[in-house]
């Protein structure tokens, strides 16, 4: 082995080699470009959809969001495009979904992080992963062909129980079919459960073991430990998870379109058919033209704006909660 030949010339050149720096710079610009794509696409979505929806906004003005009638082909007079019923439908189905999914998701997350024996833990995680993997259209298919027909009788039973009772009698009114706000809410609940569960799991996972040990060492039962050590640490994270779930529920299109009933309806009766913003778009887009199309795209603009705002707020809350956790541990 002749390592003596490795003696460098007395003044080795340390100047950059040709091309080397250029390649480095080109590569970093290229990656930056791909990163900027995200911002570009979001900006383009906003610009293009607002531009296309503009004719409908101009024609309807403020009535676009305050008018409950949506009549593209009236017997007489100009078409009316009022999105209020659909906004109501979106709100009410999402609310039902969250009321069911949030407690269930928190429960599953607690099961996975705090209660489950090692064996069952993996199975529970698999259940949630599978739930997330099933495409929403399959839930919709199951909802419209299997669940909805079964639920009609159940809805009628519930109505009989509450009929005559103020408020509840109205909310649980007559059920004509299984396709209504309630069924849509139930299907949505199944679909937002995985997302809320997975975030809650992460949040619960950040609770310091020392805190939990401290609670248990004081003689707390497992539930008291969860209430005393896990929940106080996780409030912000859970709020963020709920908001992300809300964003998902509002934007879900296909499954809702199949089970919500497809009628323009603003009714307190959860057992009546209705529609949501996302579902209307996919149901009516194919048959629309001109201002009608613009009005449907307008629904997309409203949906986009609301989901972006909700997601931004949720990310902020989750991040702030995480930062606080880290600060608390350090």
């Amino acid at each position: 082995m002749t390592l003596t030949e490795n003696k460098p010339e007395t003044r080795p050149s340390l100047a950059p080699q040709k091309g080397g720096l250029l390649a480095d710079r080109a590569f970093s610009w290229w990656t930056l470009g791909t990163g900027l794509l995200v911002l570009g696409i979001l900006a383009l979505i906003l610009i293009t959809t607002v531009r296309e929806a503009w004719p409908a906004f101009v024609e309807m003005g403020f009535r676009y969001v305050t008018e409950r009638t949506w009549d593209p082909n009236p017997a007489e007079g100009a078409p009316i495009f009022g999105a209020l019923s659909f906004m109501y439908g979106t709100a009410v189905t999402s609310l039902i979904a969250l009321l069911i999914a949030v407690p269930v998701s928190i429960g599953i997350a607690l099961f996975i992080t705090e209660l489950a024996p090692r064996r069952l833990r993996g199975s529970a995680i698999t259940v949630i992963d599978l739930l997330a993997a099933v495409p929403s259209v399959v839930f919709g298919l199951w909802g419209v062909l299997v669940l909805a027909p079964i639920l009609v009788d159940f809805y009628r039973g519930v109505h009989d129980v509450f009929s005559g009772v103020p408020v509840l009698g109205t909310i649980f009114g007559e059920a004509a079919s299984g396709r209504n706000f309630m069924t849509a809410g139930l299907i949505l609940a199944i679909m937002v459960t995985p997302i809320i569960t997975s975030i809650c799991r992460e949040v619960f996972g950040t609770v310091p073991q020392a805190d939990k040990d401290a609670a248990l060492a004081l003689g707390a039962t497992r539930w008291e430990m969860i209430r005393g050590a896990v929940f106080p640490h996780s409030f912000g994270g859970i709020t963020g998870a709920v908001m992300l779930g809300l964003g998902r529920a509002m934007g879900e299109t296909i499954a809702v379109a199949l089970v919500v009933g497809g009628s323009t309806n603003l009714s307190a009766n959860l057992f009546e058919p209705g529609n949501t913003m996302a579902a209307v778009i996919v149901q009516q887009f194919g048959e629309s033209t001109g201002t009608y199309t613009a009005a449907l795209i307008g629904l997309g603009v409203v949906l986009f704006g609301m989901t972006v705002l909700i997601n931004l707020a949720a990310q902020r809350i989750v991040r702030r909660a995480e930062a606080r956790m880290r600060g608390g541990v350090a």
Binding site: G35, L36, V38, L39, I41, L42, L44, I45, T48, T49, E52, L244, G247, R248, M250, G251, E252, T253, A278, I281, V282, I297, G300, L303, F304, T307, V308, I310, N311, L312, A314, Q315
Partner: peptide, 20 residues
């Protein structure tokens, strides 16, 4: 910003992406 917006973009409903 890009990181935050990527998270936000994950939440954009697929129907809106279709319209876009």
């Amino acid at each position: 910003t890009i990181r935050l917006m990527a998270d936000v973009m994950t939440g954009v409903p697929s129907i809106v992406m279709g319209l876009f």
